[in-house]
């Protein structure tokens, strides 16, 4: 009987807390909790990082791992550069109209933020950064890696912190295009199986190694931000759409610092 009463009382308390939390009434408490715990979390992560690296690379030597990280960063930066060049070339050659859009877009402004926590849930891919509304961060802003590829979008803002929904989150959908063929599709996250690009027409030319970037459709993200590279193309010829596995350019599991693109404001299109 006592257990039943406890379950009812605590259950109702939890439900009430969830409602209050959704209304934002508990955000100041979250802000305080993150302020207090973020240095401790950072210390714990730093302490656990070598063990995690060791487990990740049991077969590899330490120097190989460092080299790998450096090369990965270089690849990301070069791929971002290639993506930018391809986009510029294509824009100049085929889409003169885009120049007007480019002119209309202000110069990109970034805010450097430190990753202070990662959501431990198995069902979400989120991380917390040490910048919040007091720093000018707002929901919908784009977050990029140091190599300037897309990391995710700000989904929740507190006074001094913000939660970023990564592009690999199961609820993340980004309008994207393959730069080589201009084939468009939607890059979606999933539960532990990385990114996939779907809804591309079956006749679209999508090949492993192709560069995937944001298409800018929908207005949620700017155009031509690097997402990653096509790792494999799946599906059968009779399928309605072509599906491709996309390898994110940024190493999303080990981000330490990110850039918040503060100059881009997402537009929310309504149906005509």
């Amino acid at each position: 009987m006592r257990t039943l009463v406890w379950l009812l009382v605590v259950g109702l308390f939890a439900l009430l807390s969830i409602v209050l939390s959704q209304l934002g009434a508990l955000d100041p408490f979250k802000n305080v909790a993150l302020t207090v715990t973020s240095p401790l979390e950072r210390g714990l992560r730093r302490a656990a990082s070598p063990a995690a690296d060791f487990l990740d690379n049991t077969a590899k030597r330490q120097d190989l791992e460092g080299e790998n990280r450096l090369l990965r960063q270089q690849i990301e930066e070069l791929t971002a550069e290639i993506a930018s060049l391809k986009e510029s070339q294509s824009t100049a050659a085929d889409l003169a109209g885009l120049a007007e859009i480019e002119k209309g877009r202000p110069d990109d402004r970034f805010l450097v933020a430190r990753v202070i926590a990662r959501d431990p849930s198995n069902l979400k891919e989120r991380l917390a950064i040490d910048r919040g509304s007091n720093d000018g961060v707002a929901e919908g802003m784009v977050v990029m890696s140091q190599g300037q590829s897309v990391v995710g979008v700000i989904s929740k803002v507190l006074d001094d912190f913000a939660w970023v929904t990564l592009i690999t989150d199961p609820n993340s959908n980004v309008n994207a295009m393959v730069l080589e063929s201009r084939a468009q599709g939607v890059v979606s996250g999933s539960l532990h199986s990385g990114l996939s690009m779907d809804l591309s027409p079956q006749d679209a030319k999508v090949e492993p190694g192709n560069t995937v970037a944001t298409s800018g459709l929908g207005g949620n993200l700017p155009q031509a931000l690097l997402i990653g590279q096509v790792a494999a193309v799946r599906g059968e010829p009779q399928d309605l759409f072509k599906e491709a596995e996309v390898e994110p350019a940024a190493s999303l599991s080990r981000l330490e610092n990110v850039l918040v693109l503060t100059s881009f404001v997402a537009t929310h299109l309504t149906s005509p």
Binding site: V10, A14, I18, S21, A33, P120, R126
Partner: peptide, 13 residues
């Protein structure tokens, strides 16, 4: 819940 992105009360439930 206070230090993760979940609504407060989720983990309690």
């Amino acid at each position: 819940d206070l230090i993760s992105s979940d609504p407060v009360g989720t983990s309690v439930l």
